[in-house]
Each structure stands twice: as structure tokens, then as C-alpha cells.
Design a protein around this nucleic acid. Structure first.
Lengths: 219, 219
DNA sequence: AAATTTATTTAGGCAAACCTAAACTTTAAT
DNA sequence: ATTAAAGTTTAGGTTTGCCTAAATAAATTT
């Protein structure tokens, strides 16, 4: 079992290395972790002794396979809690991070299993980042533009291409956010707009303009 | 802001002193906290310096008013998380404690406010213990036996007087647990049984035997 | 290629929260 | 009222995770 500090190092190495494969520098870690390089050296020796990282003095670190497994577990917890905070407790994106950062360190397999179930096995977090599976797989879903869905097809919103306040407010009003489940109810051939049902309830008609700016993954 | 260790000491003092008023011994604390008496002495000096406890060497500790405020905040968090785990994630009573013990230390006012709201401002936890208010008040509700409720009256289950498996399984099947909201739909004078609606949905008829074993607080 | 700058590690320290062993109080027993 | 036992504190030590300052290695300039 790892301490909170160790977990934060592993997460940081994972993020900086873009998945654990590339080597990461001591200074880079010290910056993301807000500590001094000397402290990082200390910890790397420790993580290396635990076989969680490959560490070659003066030449950076990478995660071992075990290290990657641990990293993905933490990321899974972090992202599931983010979904919980946004979807159930109505946190906004910017309020989420600090709290999830604490919750991700709570130790309980059962808790995460049940949380995942409670949230309906979400595949992406409120930022659109994928949630690793229980087995530790980070599946990269194929993204499709909402405009390309046929009638009856379903999708989960994973990205929006326009971040202008007016557009985001519009999405807010119709009830669309990252993670929202959509289904095409009908197609209006006249102007290529679609009738979309949102989270299995109310439906709205979206113009082809809007449809081009929303990306979904297959459900 | 207190550390996790400090919070655990404060909670332990609160519990052992039965609300913070009576003095608590070093050995008592060392037993509940699973540490050595010497470590307790250390921490008491520290908490005393922070004015969270009144500590007289060789004569025990009590919480100061500030200490009591802190204790009630932690207990509030603990019990709210217990409600969440049982009602939303379907944990059983015995699985709850260890996890809530970790979650209670997550720091975020907003989180607790929102959690409380999400759970519908519960007044008792899954063991029937009262949840302190946001203002730090521990209201002791008046308990009434379910049999004494009149038609239309509501109540929240707070205690059951029979802990035999057969009885608990029966309650389980009809959907009654600590925290369940009940309302008397009708009274059957013939045998003094009551028709009770459970969590605002399905209703059942409970015999007067059963009605005598269930306690509720007014809603 | 040598010199300088930058990056990294080592050495030595500090605070938190624990420990053991020894010293000291209080309580209980004779 | 002494003495023994039990409870508590102090003194000194450990580990974790951080720090600063000094030493060393790598990268960059000249």
C-alpha cells in the first residue's frame, strides 16, 4: 500500500510522461508537485526501492508496469469522484479538482466499485478525459461528431468544439454537458437538424451548426 | 486547520467523555486510539497549546468549546458519509465505518453542504445516531414508537427494538431501515395494525407487534 | 576542449506522530 | 502512613516527507 505522498508522485510521473513511457526529469516533478528537487530525489529512491519506478540517477524516471497499474487506479478514482461531484453534487468544473484530489486517496476497493455502479459506469469524466476500467485499461474511444449519428443511435458527450460563453450557456440551458447521454430521436431532412433526447428524458431540436460542435463516443 | 491525527484525538476525546464535558484519561485515549500512552501525552500537550482541550497533567483532558465545535464538525461529516454509503452505495452497517473514517477528513465546506442537500438533510445516521447540524447543534429528537402515530403523521425510523435476524430480514424485505421515511396511510381498528407508506412510495400493513418494535422521530 | 551554467544528488536538519525505557505522580493496599 | 501498583509524563529515538546548502554530473557556451 502506498502513502498519499507516494501516490501523488506516481500520478505526477504518469501525467508528465504522458502515460508512463517517457522519462521524466526531477525538476519537472518538483514543479508540478510544488516541492524542491532535493525532495524529489529522495522520493524517487524510495519509489525505486519499491519497484514502482525505473530510476537512473541524473537521467530521469519512468513508471514500471506496477507503477502504471497504481497510477491508473488513482486516476480512475479521481475521475469517478469528479463525475460524482459534478453530476450528483452539482459542483462546477473548477470546484472539482481540489476535492477529488483528496478523495482519490481513500482506500477501499468496494467503495470504488459501488461508486462506479452508482454513477452508471461512466466512461469519461467532466472534462472529457477517459476513466480507466477496473482492470486498469484506458480505452481511447472513437469520437464522432453528433451530426453524424443516425436516428436511434446513442452517444455520450465527450467534447465541445466551441468554448465561447454564449455557446456553453446555451448547452447548459438545454442540459448538455460532458458525460450527458444522448439519443437521436428523429432527423429533419429539411435543414439537417436532429431531435435529440437528453439523458433519456426531455428532447430538443439542435441545428446542424450546433451538431457540428458536439462530439460523442459510442455508448 | 487540524491534521488527521489531531482530528482523531478530538473525536476520541468527544466520544469517551460523552459529549466533551467529563474528563478523559490518557490510558483511555491510548486504548481507543490504539497508540501508547506516551504518544497521547505528546498530542495532548499539542492540542492544549492550540486551545482545543483543557489539559491538566495527571488529571485528564476535556474539550474546550472550540474543541467541541471541531468534534461536532467531524462527527457531522462522518455520519453524513455513512448515510451516503448505506443509502446510495448500498453498504451494510459493518462495512461503513472504516470508509467513513477516511472520508470524514476530506476538507471542503462546500462538499459537506452539498452532500447534506443531496441526501435530503438526514437527521440520523444508519445506526440511528443524530447528525449534528451545520451550526454544530446536536439536537436530541424525541423518539416515539411507530404504533403511536396517527393517520397522516410522518416519521423517520431511528431505532428498532428487536435485533433477531428474522425480524431484521423482515424489515429488509419491506424496505425499512434506519433513516427510512414513513407515513401512516390508514389505521385498521380491528387489530390495531397500520398501513404505512415507505419512502413516499409503496405501502405495507404492519401488525401491532411490529409497530411496537420500531421507533421514529418526528419529521 | 575548456569553462560556465544548469540540473541533480548528497548531507545534514526539521516537524509530525509515533515508539521504548526510565522517571515521576497518583491511587490502592497493607 | 508507608509501600506497592497503576497511571502518566519525560527523554531520547525512529520514520516519513519535507527543507537548505554544498557537492557533483550533464549540458551549453565560448
Amino acid at each position: 500500500m502506498q502513502s498519499t505522498a507516494e501516490e501523488n508522485y506516481i500520478k505526477a510521473i504518469y501525467k508528465l510522461s504522458g502515460g508512463g513511457t517517457n522519462a521524466v526529469s526531477t525538476t519537472g516533478l518538483s514543479e508540478t508537485l510544488q516541492t524542491k528537487p532535493a525532495s524529489v530525489s529522495d522520493m524517487l529512491r524510495k519509489l525505486s526501492a519499491k519497484d514502482l519506478v525505473h530510476y537512473v540517477k541524473y537521467h530521469g524516471v519512468q513508471l514500471t508496469e506496477e507503477g502504471q497499474r497504481v497510477a491508473l487506479k488513482i486516476i480512475r478514482k479521481h475521475r469517478l469522484w469528479e463525475v460524482f461531484l459534478v453530476q450528483k453534487l452539482h459542483f462546477t468544473w473548477d470546484e472539482v479538482h481540489e476535492v477529488a484530489e483528496q478523495m482519490e486517496h481513500v482506500k477501499s476497493e468496494l467503495l470504488i466499485q459501488r461508486l462506479d455502479e452508482f454513477l452508471g459506469h461512466p466512461r469519461i469524466d467532466p472534462h472529457g478525459d477517459p476513466i480507466p476500467t477496473e482492470a486498469g485499461e484506458l480505452r481511447q474511444e472513437e469520437q464522432r461528431v453528433l451530426a453524424s449519428l443516425a436516428v436511434e443511435q446513442k452517444g455520450v458527450v465527450c467534447r465541445v468544439k466551441d468554448s465561447q460563453p454564449a455557446f456553453l450557456q446555451y448547452l447548459n440551458r438545454v442540459g448538455i454537458q460532458i458525460g450527458t447521454q444522448l439519443q437521436v430521436v428523429d432527423k429533419i431532412p429539411y435543414d439537417n437538424s436532429l431531435e435529440i433526447s437528453i439523458d433519456k428524458s426531455k428532447s430538443v431540436i439542435l441545428s446542424s451548426d450546433v451538431l457540428e460542435k458536439i462530439f460523442v463516443i459510442n455508448p
